[in-house]
Design a binder for these strands. Structure first.
Lengths: 205, 205
DNA sequence: CCTTTTTTGAAACAAACGTTTTATAATTAT
DNA sequence: ATAATTATAAAACGTTTGTTTCAAAAAAGG
């Protein structure tokens, strides 16, 4: 055992391969954390949903906290990929911002659970540096994506409301969390769509 | 015991009074839930902070969930009282809206914990009808408070940006949650103050 | 004072928690 | 085939969980 630890990262002699698909298992775990939150999820919830034994879990992925970290990484990375693909073929920067806003509204008002990143921010990010780092990276990605579009939109004079691209980017992003909260409380798509429409009008004027 | 339950609400014969101040104890419990969340808080956390034994707790207030319900009620009711007092002597409705926004920004960027109502919304409101009802009542209070001001501001032509008071009220309220999230992630007061200033300018224009 | 009723503190409760151990099955290299 | 190594499943680990019990203390009415 000691020998195999020293000659990492690959074990010297292979004996048996892991049976389950780790990425798939993490994706299943993510769904549980998404629904129940970190503290509301038990290891038995996780192993049951993942379809693996706890010994296999601890041998490959690690403990509950490591699994949570990998789950929210999986969540944020999937979302970043989707966002990149979504906007790559739009020529007008303002139209791209509109599309991003409308796509967010659609997700907010049609997904069964609220955003995992936001739930995590309010539940554990304050007291968990490792989690906070992932959340911050996810936030920074959205910020960079949008500020690129905002800058181009200002250059092209598609936005006249303000010249402060950084503030305007913060201002746009700021709406998403409120829409999530509103939908949890009221379950009213129209209220959210109306304020989103107003935000877009404000930018376009 | 059956007899004393029948002749409720007051017991027929008093024997000994509760030693601790129930409102104070609930306030202490609220602080723990505020910091750790519902699932992150244990009964031992609570009894320790409240300075009472669990038997006394169960005899007077009830179980963990009932204590949580009373804690968030205490939170929301305190906040409603403060909001009412804050705005009662302002003549200009737009100035009152500005004051409400600025007071919220101050709280967001100076309190050690993020808003308990928002944390609760994202942690447990979806799956807990009793909690959701309290959260919805709190939300409705803020909504009614602000829509009154927005309507007056539109009447007085202090707001020209839109005639749709309901949408505009949702739009204003929607910012608060995002500011909370932003402050958890970035701890940057200036970013929040700038977007708040921009929101006020948008309304005032 | 004495009886009655209730609160209190400490201990105890079963169940559930996150995690580890152990024995067995499976796989690869020799 | 055999030896070596690892993944797996089931059971067990010691703690901690939310909650209850129980004896003792306290206070009210008779």
């Amino acid at each position: 055992m000691i020998v195999s630890k020293i000659c990492l990262p690959l074990p010297c002699i292979m004996a048996r391969n892991v049976e389950f698909d780790e990425q798939l298992a993490i994706s299943k775990a993510m769904d549980v954390f998404w629904k129940k939150g970190y503290n509301g999820t038990t290891m038995r919830d996780l192993t049951e949903a993942m379809g693996i034994n706890s010994s296999s879990l601890y041998n490959t992925i690690g403990d509950k906290h490591q699994l949570f970290v990998k789950s929210i990484k999986h969540y944020t990375e999937s979302r970043m990929d989707a966002a990149k693909k979504q906007l790559q073929q739009i020529t007008s920067p303002l139209k791209a911002i509109e599309k991003y806003i409308n796509a967010s509204v659609y997700t907010i008002t049609n997904e069964p659970n609220s955003c995992l990143a936001i739930k995590t921010t309010f539940e554990v990010a304050t007291g968990d540096a490792e989690v906070q780092k992932i959340i911050r990276a996810d936030s920074e990605f959205t910020y960079q994506l949008l500020i690129g579009l905002v800058n181009k939109a200002i250059e092209k004079k598609e936005i006249k409301v303000s010249q402060d691209a950084e503030m305007l980017t913060d201002y746009i992003i700021n709406h998403f969390t409120g829409w999530h909260e509103s939908f949890i409380i009221h379950r009213d798509k129209t209220r959210i769509k109306k304020t989103a429409q107003f935000l877009i009008e404000q930018l376009s004027q």
